[in-house]
Computed example of a mutant assay.
Amino acid sequence: MKAAVIGANGQLGTDLAAALEQESYDVARITHADLEIGDPAAVRTVLGQVRPNIVINTAAMHNVEACEQEPERAYQVNSIGARALAQYCAENGVYLLHVSTDYVFDGKKKKPYVETDAPLPLNVYGNSKVAGESFVLSTGDTGAVLRVSGIYGTNKCRAKGGLNFVQLMLKLADEREEVRVVDDEILTPTNTIDIARQVVRLCDARAPGLFHGTAHGQCSWYRFAQEIFSLAGKGVRLLPARPGEFPAKVPRPSYSVLENQALKSLGLDVMSDWESGLKRYLSTR
Rank of each mutant, 00 (worst) to 15 (best):
W221C: 00
A3H: 03
D273G: 14
Q22A: 14
F135N: 03
A90F: 02
P52Y: 07
R180H: 15
T154M: 13
N78P: 03
K171W: 04
N127H: 15
L16A: 06
N9A: 15
G277M: 12
A17I: 03
L238V: 04
L202S: 12
K129L: 03
L85T: 07
L282A: 08
Q226L: 10
T101I: 01
F105N: 02
E21M: 10
I37P: 07
K110P: 02
E70S: 07
L96K: 08
I37L: 15
A248Y: 08
Y255E: 02
E178R: 15
N155L: 01
G107L: 05
Y88N: 02
G213S: 04
L146P: 03
V199W: 04
L168Y: 13
F246Q: 08
F224Q: 06
R237H: 14
A59P: 13
K111H: 15
Y95C: 05
P52A: 09
D39G: 10
F229D: 06
D184G: 00
G143W: 00
A41N: 05
Q198A: 15
N92L: 01
G126M: 00
P112M: 10
T14L: 06
V94T: 13
S138H: 01
C67K: 03
C219N: 04
Q69E: 15
G140K: 01
V46T: 13
L16R: 09
V94H: 08
L258E: 02
T14W: 11
N9M: 08
A42S: 13
L170G: 07
I151T: 15
N164A: 09
T284R: 14
S254K: 11
D174G: 12
K279I: 11
M271F: 15
R252D: 01
M61N: 04
S283R: 12
E175V: 00
G161M: 11
Y75V: 01
P251Q: 02
K129Q: 08
Q261E: 14
R206L: 10
L263H: 05
A207D: 02
V124K: 02
K129S: 01
R44V: 00
A66H: 11
Y103F: 12
L12Q: 10
V200T: 10
A28D: 11
A90Y: 00
G162A: 05
V99G: 03
A144M: 08
E177I: 00
A28Q: 07
L35C: 12
E65N: 08
N9L: 08
P253W: 03
R158F: 13
S138L: 02
S272H: 14
F165V: 14
N260M: 02
N63F: 00
E65K: 07
Q218H: 08
P247F: 03
A86K: 02
E175P: 00
Y103M: 10
N9C: 11
G217K: 05
G213I: 02
L170K: 06
K171D: 12
E70K: 01
A82G: 04
G140R: 00
A248T: 01
I193K: 15
Q198Y: 05
A28Y: 13
V236P: 11
G132M: 05
Q218S: 15
F211G: 04
G233V: 07
L85E: 12
A232Q: 01
G153K: 14
L20C: 07
F246S: 03
L239V: 13
F105M: 04
A86T: 06
L170D: 07
V136I: 03
G126W: 00
L85S: 06
L20S: 05
L282F: 12
